[in-house]
């Protein structure tokens, strides 16, 4: 674009330089304003330091460094295949389930390394829960679905389980719809209800963090709206990281946004995901610093 402007010949070289310098200064000033207006980031929940993720010898994601803060909703956006789900699954060691998956670099949870040799993945997942793209209720009753987590973590008392089930279903905004049919199969619910059931199931074990992998992509707009409202409601008690390919959703719910893109390696014809830019959501969408971010959020790419 700048080339074309230059070729109009209406401006001389030095004048053009002046305009560009002025533009950059204005942007820096705006960023400083953003930073002043931004509240001091709270407790660090996650810190990733130059994390790369490999499947066998294939490098799926490279050099991700970011921090996730307490009681915020952080969104990962980007085109398909850019590794945002891979990075998300690294945060609760779900990538362990894939054969040949390997993580380089450090991922810290509240100061403790998640990939230290003595860390138990089940302990990790009890504190860092996950909701998946396609709702996956168990073929059990609604009650047993929600009570599943507490039960396997040792809770046997029927009274307490009843409490936990009701509380979780209320938090997931599903209680009123299912309270009379708790013994019915969880498979009989509509898509939106099933996803809220999965959210209730995740909340039932009282995690610290809830990771969400495109939770609304299989749902209709009304169900999507219900889940977005839910996220904003529970944000004060949980930390949420959400992967979404819907930019409007990111602007609606998230406090911070990380934009990922793809690096294509010509020689080996492979695509590796990379973190391009990370900042407050308003800044990413209104005033992106990187050109690739700007191209994506204005709809020219992806």
């Amino acid at each position: 674009m700048e080339q074309a402007d230059q070729n109009t010949g209406n401006f001389s070289e030095p004048a053009l330089q002046q305009v560009q310098t002025a533009q950059q200064e204005a942007q820096t000033a705006r960023q400083q304003e953003y930073q002043k207006a931004e509240p001091a980031p709270g407790t660090h929940v996650f810190d990733t330091d130059n994390v790369s993720i490999f499947y066998g010898s294939f490098k799926a994601v490279t050099g991700v460094s970011l921090s996730v803060y307490e009681n915020e909703i952080t969104a990962f956006i980007g085109p398909s295949g850019c590794g945002k789900t891979t990075v998300l699954r690294t945060l609760n060691r779900m990538n362990d389930l894939v054969e040949g998956a390997r993580v380089e670099g450090d991922v810290q949870y509240r100061g403790a390394s998640l990939y230290a040799s003595n860390v138990s993945p089940t302990a990790v997942r009890r504190r860092i829960g996950m909701v998946f793209q396609k709702p996956n209720p168990f073929p059990k009753s609604i009650y047993d679905n929600v009570a599943y987590g507490p039960r396997i973590n040792g809770e046997r008392n029927k009274g307490r389980l009843d409490e936990i089930v009701e509380r979780s279903l209320r938090q997931a905004a599903l209680w009123d719809e299912v309270k009379d049919r708790l013994k019915h199969s969880g498979l009989g619910l509509s898509g939106g209800q099933a996803q809220r059931l999965c959210i209730a199931r995740t909340l039932a074990v009282e995690p610290d963090v809830v990771l969400m992998d495109e939770p609304c992509s299989a749902l209709d707009p009304i169900a999507t709206g219900a889940i977005e409202d839910l996220m904003k409601e529970i944000k004060s008690e949980y930390t949420i990281v959400i992967v979404t390919h819907n930019m409007q959703q990111a602007t609606r719910v998230s406090d911070r946004t990380a934009f990922y893109s793809v690096l294509r390696d010509e020689k080996s014809d492979t695509r590796t995901g990379v973190l391009v830019e990370y900042g407050r959501t308003e800044q990413i969408f209104e005033d992106p610093a990187d050109d690739r971010t700007k191209a994506y959020v204005t709809g020219r790419m992806g």
């Binding site: 302990a123 829960g129 998946f132 168990f138 396997i152």
Partner: peptide
């Protein structure tokens, strides 16, 4: 049995 059921179980901290 689909893998998504297993994932849902692992995700709440099951061995």
């Amino acid at each position: 049995v689909p893998g998504s059921l297993r994932e849902g179980s692992y995700a709440v901290g099951a061995t």
